[in-house]
């Protein structure tokens, strides 16, 4: 068994979400410490407001203001809060039916412990100090032992959904952390690259040599297991000249991005061509790898970097005949 490689993979993006009128009014309302619901086709007040009726699918747009206190309909005690959740000390997840609403809203309840929480208990919104127009403008709920009116409405009151500086979109950053493993075949391949050897794998059925190997011969559906060293030289089968900078790549344009069939391989891999003016690259050009200096495989900052050649350069050999590589294009 080869050593199995792993490396961190972070999938992170600040998604920009446009809201549409109902969600826009609701989230702007939260910024203004006002909770809006929407009247469904059957007269129920849905909070948080849906854009479309959960029963009839009709578009619903009749907004109402509801209370900022309400009743817990179910709850769950979270002893170990996780990244991104509303509170970083143990809390209860709650569904809360706000006064004037007929459905419940999901959020967190700040309570000293599970013994302090029960279904049917009264809670009220604790507003975030800084509010931007987001569900997190409700910092959380807190127990509300006052029996009196909290100053906000208990019966739904019609609302026009208008606020100054109505929000039309939100930014919703999301980050997920993965530990990526490429599996056995690619681990073998990458480790060989660190020794500046290119190891393909041969299919036992069709005898084709795959570079990089991916664990299966995709046409035969069987495991490739015999390693075959290919290259280092190869032939440019086709290419394009890149004139715009690719995202996150520090390569001066123009440069040539080519498909290269390494000698002994049955399909082409992709790489940059250097060591020759870009406008002189041609199909059939014979090339060889120029290896990058790199700290692969085990320095932390390079975890996950493939020790691939930095680019390929001409060998000086005569060009390959078109017929010799046309099946590899």
């Amino acid at each position: 068994m080869p050593e199995i490689l792993t490396a961190p993979l972070v999938v992170e993006f600040p998604f920009t979400r446009s809201l549409g009128p109902v969600q826009s009014a609701f989230l702007t309302g939260l910024r203004e410490r006002t909770v809006l619901g929407v009247t469904a086709s059957d007269g129920r007040v849905v909070v948080p407001p849906a854009e479309y009726d959960p029963v009839t699918a009709e578009e619903i747009r009749e907004l109402v203001e509801v209370g900022t206190a309400g009743t817990v309909t179910t709850w769950a005690w979270n002893p170990a809060p996780r990244r991104g959740q509303p509170l970083d000390t143990p809390f209860a997840w709650v569904l809360v039916r706000l006064d004037g609403a007929d459905t419940a809203l999901l959020h967190a309840l700040d309570a000293p412990g599970p013994d302090a929480v029960r279904t049917g208990m009264r809670v009220r919104i604790r507003w975030a100090a800084e509010r931007t127009g987001a569900i997190t403008d409700i910092a959380c709920f807190e127990p509300d032992e006052s029996t009196g009116d909290d100053g906000r409405t208990r019966e739904p009151v019609a609302h026009d959904g208008q606020f100054p500086d109505l929000l039309t979109g939100i930014t919703a950053p999301a980050r997920l952390d993965y530990t990526y493993s490429p599996g056995a075949a690619q681990s073998r391949y990458i480790q060989a690259l660190a020794d500046r050897r290119t190891l393909g794998e041969r299919c036992p059925a069709c005898r084709k040599v795959y570079v990089p190997p991916r664990g299966a011969c995709p046409t035969c559906g069987v495991a490739t297991s015999t390693q075959v060293e290919v290259g280092p030289r190869g032939t440019v089968t086709t290419f394009c000249i890149v004139n715009i900078k690719a995202r996150n790549l520090d390569i001066d344009v123009p440069y040539v991005y080519a498909h290269i069939a390494l000698d002994g391989a049955d399909l082409a891999l992709h790489a940059r061509i250097g060591g020759i003016p870009y406008d002189q690259v041609r199909m059939g050009l014979r090339v060889e790898p120029v290896w990058a200096d790199g700290a692969f495989p085990h320095s932390p900052e390079d975890m996950g970097a493939a020790p691939i050649p930095d680019h390929y350069r001409p060998t000086g050999e005569p060009d390959a005949d078109y017929d010799s590589y046309k099946e590899l294009i």
Binding site: L5, A7, P8, L9, V10, V11, Y180, P182, Q186, I190, T237, T238, F239, C240, V242, I244, A246, R247, N248, L249, I251, Y257, A258, H259, H270, A271, R272, M283, M303, G304, A305, A306, I308, I329
Partner: peptide, 25 residues
């Protein structure tokens, strides 16, 4: 389309760079 998958060559040429070599072919 180009999440930073470890051990894989980053997309060296953007979206069009994938198609252009086939067009040349």
């Amino acid at each position: 389309l180009s999440l930073p998958i470890p051990f894989q060559q980053p997309l060296l040429a953007g979206a069009g760079g994938f198609f252009a070599p086939h067009i040349r072919a």
